[in-house]
């Protein structure tokens, strides 16, 4: 039996499918590089999804929608930041609570938005590039956020690697006591990193509700936040590997949907779980190298308490 799947369409929708997780994972990567483990990605994403959706519907502007989503995610992460950095609560428990709170709270806000359609998101116009055969639809017929997310990968990579800010961020995540002794403001730096992570997760959520789906349903992130968390770990805290992981996940998601539609004789359940299983497997193999675990920020998840 010939499967009737167009490679062009598959690749074109891959980037769209991967962008929400990519955005969330990038934010979490920065947060974790500063030594903070925020398990609330899922909650921040869905808050971003509803905030973005609601504002876009009310104002008719998707740009305002994305801004609102970033703010919403950041505000939620601020709760986490205050609890863990100022009140020194446990990061794992607080992060889990944040996810549960985000899921519940978004459902509350979103009650009146179910079934509405958001304003359409315009494609970026690349002129003649968009009309190239094959390459055009695959690479140059997407909305701006897809390119923003890729630019963000490059920016985070460059900042972490080459800039003073990135060095300080890594230093704080590596050894907060030493950073404190050298006079760096550990708590302030971490709060900023958490807020950045929240904003990115919010953007990722809004991309789901405004572009990928696009509509609002309760619990629509469906575990995307957890996949983002896993990508950061298995991507060994490296932005380009996270991109690879996200696109792999997005690609297999789209492929299995196409296979379902094409009526492949494999149980739907197995197809549905394949993106999760394959992404994790590939990244586990990639990170099996012992040097990868070295990349983990040494004080990840540890409470910092300035003793003097």
């Amino acid at each position: 039996m010939m499967l009737n799947i167009s490679l062009e369409l598959l690749l074109a929708s891959l980037m769209v499918a991967a962008t929400p997780i990519l955005l969330a994972a990038l934010g979490e990567l920065v947060t974790e590089k500063s030594g903070v483990l925020n398990l609330g990605v899922e909650g921040m994403m869905i808050i971003g999804a509803i905030c973005g959706f609601a504002v876009a519907v009310e104002t008719g502007s998707t740009i305002l929608g994305f801004i609102a989503a970033a703010l919403g995610g950041a505000v939620l992460s601020l709760i986490f930041a205050v609890l863990t950095q100022v009140l020194m609560s446990n990061q794992v428990a607080t992060g889990l609570a944040l996810t549960l709170f985000g899921l519940g709270f978004s459902a509350l806000i979103g009650q009146s938005y179910a079934g509405l359609k958001p304003p359409p998101v315009p494609e970026l116009d690349f002129g003649p590039l968009s009309n190239l055969p094959f390459v055009g639809p695959v690479l140059f017929q997407h909305d701006a956020m897809v390119y923003v997310s890729i630019a963000l990968v490059a920016a985070i990579w460059a900042v972490l690697r080459f800039s003073r800010v990135g060095l300080i961020l890594r230093a704080v995540g590596e050894n907060h006591d030493a950073a404190h002794a050298l006079g760096y403001k550990v708590v302030r730096i971490r709060i900023l990193a958490i807020l950045f992570g929240g904003a990115c997760a919010g953007l990722g959520g809004a991309y789901l509700s405004l572009v990928r789906v696009p509509q609002w349903t309760e619990g629509m992130t469906a575990g995307a936040g957890w996949i983002a968390l896993a990508l950061v770990v298995f991507g060994a805290w490296k932005p380009w590997r996270v991109l690879l992981g996200a696109y792999l996940f997005g690609g297999i998601t789209v492929l299995q949907l196409n296979l379902q539609a094409a009526g492949l004789a494999v149980p739907v359940e197995i197809l549905s779980m394949s993106p999760y299983v394959i992404t994790i497997l590939v990244l586990v193999v990639m990170s099996a190298d012992r040097r990868a675990s070295l990349n983990a920020p040494a004080t990840l998840g540890r409470v910092f308490h300035a003793s003097n």
């Binding site: 590596e174 050894n175 006591d177 950073a179 002794a181 006079g183």
Partner: peptide, 29 residues
């Protein structure tokens, strides 16, 4: 920072170094 600006430097008893970073990065910090 203010102490360093005034010309006071300190070598710590428990090394205040970052193991995962290289020598130049540690010094830059």
């Amino acid at each position: 920072k203010a102490a360093r600006a005034s010309g006071v430097a300190m070598v710590f008893q428990h090394f205040s170094l970052f193991e995962a970073l290289d020598v130049a990065e540690n010094i830059a910090l």
